[in-house]
Simulated assay, not measured.
Amino acid sequence: MGKLLHISASPRGEASESLRIARVFTETFQEAHPDDEVEHWDLWDGSLPDFAVGARAKMTVFGGDEPQGAEAEAWEAARRTFERFDSADRLLFSVPMWNASVPYVLKQFIDVVSQPGWIFTVDPATGYGPQLSGRGKRVAVVYTSAVWGPPLGPEFGSDFQSTFFGDWLRWTGLTDIQDIRFHPTLTGDRDEARREADARARDIAKVF
């Protein structure tokens, strides 16, 4: 039995387009894969640990030592977060655009789980080594925005949302990635954009 983990970066509930599209995806996935588990992880639910002490623990690990005391507790909390993320062989992210990039809670998630030996190794001669590659994990990402859209000029903003997040996924070794996009812009046909996004979500989910 496989597992789909939906990781949500939107706090807007029923008003969220990224969550609505993700719901279309997960419902279709469950219909097509009735024996697989589906888990939803709302990054705004308070489960992400603060990483101020964890950042010190990270550098302790980089130095070849074992975190102690408060650092050890912070490191263990980060490890539990990573293990929840790593428990699924199928990952769905719902990512709204905030100020041309991603919501800060998603960056917090990335900073917590991106640790040496878990997500990456680093070699002074060859650089970073991704740790999640070659494990058959697949990723789907729902990207949404209200103002920015691919056909528009820079006066309507820039896309550091998918460029940043896609780069992070590939850096970890997750390269089997499919995007589902909803960018109706301020003057576009929102209903048609929804239909197109929903259709793509269903098509991907059926064979995910």
Rank of each mutant, 00 (worst) to 15 (best):
M1Q: 05
M1A: 10
G2I: 00
L5S: 02
L5V: 01
H6G: 00
I7H: 06
S8C: 06
P11L: 01
P11W: 01
G13M: 00
G13A: 03
E14P: 05
A15D: 09
S18C: 03
A22S: 14
R23N: 14
T28H: 11
T28W: 10
E31S: 15
A32V: 11
H33F: 15
D35V: 15
E37A: 15
E37Q: 15
H40F: 15
W41K: 07
W41M: 14
L43C: 13
W44C: 15
S47Q: 15
L48N: 12
P49Q: 09
F51V: 12
A52S: 15
A52V: 15
V53Y: 12
K58F: 14
M59P: 02
M59C: 06
T60Y: 11
V61K: 14
F62K: 12
P67S: 08
Q68H: 08
G69K: 02
A70G: 06
A70P: 04
E73M: 11
A74F: 07
W75N: 07
E76M: 10
R79V: 08
T81A: 12
E83F: 08
S87F: 07
D89N: 05
L92C: 02
F93K: 00
P96Y: 07
V102G: 02
V102W: 01
V102Y: 03
V102M: 03
Y104Q: 07
V105S: 00
L106I: 05
L106A: 03
L106V: 05
Q108A: 06
D111F: 02
S114V: 07
G117Y: 08
W118C: 00
W118Q: 07
W118D: 04
I119E: 03
F120H: 04
T121H: 13
V122L: 08
P124G: 06
A125E: 15
P130E: 04
G134W: 13
G136W: 04
R138T: 08
R138S: 09
R138K: 14
T144I: 00
W148D: 11
P150Y: 11
P151S: 06
P154D: 13
P154T: 11
F156M: 12
S158D: 11
F160V: 04
Q161A: 08
S162G: 07
F164W: 14
F165C: 09
G166V: 10
G166C: 10
G166S: 10
D167I: 04
L169G: 01
R170L: 01
G173A: 10
L174H: 03
Q178T: 12
D179H: 12
I180P: 03
R181C: 05
R181D: 11
H183S: 08
P184E: 03
T185E: 05
D191Y: 04
E192H: 11
R194C: 04
R195G: 14
E196M: 09
D198V: 04
D198F: 14
D198H: 13
A205I: 08
A205L: 08
K206G: 11
K206I: 05
V207G: 02
V207C: 00
F208E: 01
